[in-house]
Amino acid sequence: MDVTTGFFTQDLWTWWLAVYLYFGGLGAATLTTTFLTDMYMKPHKELVLWGAWSGIIMLSLGSSMLFIHLLDHLAVIHVLNPLVLFNQPHAWIAWGTQFIVWMMVWGFLYSLPYMLESEFFNSIPILKNILALPLVQKIGSTCGRHCRLCGWLATINGIGTVVYTGLLLQSFPAVALWHNPGVPLLFTVSAFSTAMAFLLLILNLAIKKREEDRPLRVFYERTDLMLIAAELIILFSFFFYLQRGSQSAAISAQLLWNDWGWLIGFIGFGLVVPFFLELKGVIKGWRSPAPIMLASVLVLVGGYLLRHYFMYAGVYARPW
């Protein structure tokens, strides 16, 4: 069939889905990183509580974006049922919903023993009464005894959530920008990079155990540096992948690389500037934490911009 082809972007999944993907990736990677840190690097109550609760809040915010945009809110019950994985094993939203729900459940249970001994949580009026309940105490002590199991179950679901945010876009075959294996990889690397940036901010602003946590901050800085480098390489590959091949891909490339928000905002200030700020920090160090905190804020903004522009630059080739 010889057709005249038109090229269209979509207006169905816009900024709000970018927020869903962003908070999904950031929240899950934050929770996963803090749990792995607590289990294998350094037991750290404050970090776990910050990681678990900011992760749960971010995932709730992100999920609420999708939920409020559903046409039929009651029908969401079908996808909350774990049996959905047997009925729709090929639907990534089904997997993603289960990953998110179970990550929050296991994340809560992993952090519960720390919550029970936390002064902050035990000073919140209603919550302190709930935490004092014998049942909650018993669950907390059980989770404390099996913390590795809870931690790994949360971690597996967390990694699942992170990868899912990319797999979701990859499952749409009509859009060359999305339908390729680079997308889950890019979104996974970006999610863990933003999580490192977020945790650096938490360590510098909220926890403030400066000397004690120094090795942890250095580790997160180095890891973030490598993740930003990996992200730049993946984007470099994307640039050349999109240039040649389908026309839909080439138009996506034009949309992205001719946009100052993508080029200067995301690649420039969201990746290159933080890369050099962190590189200087790793090689020679900074006298003040301010440059690393600036780099972290830029990485966090960049992480959203990546998903925002990705949603708007998806191009459909249609035969009319």
Binding site: W13, A91, Y316
Partner: peptide, 17 residues
């Protein structure tokens, strides 16, 4: 229509709009 929650993934996946 009883089961559809209207997430829109189908519309995103459909090449034929």
């Amino acid at each position: 229509e009883e089961t559809c929650m209207g997430c829109g993934a189908c519309a995103m996946a459909c090449p034929y709009d």
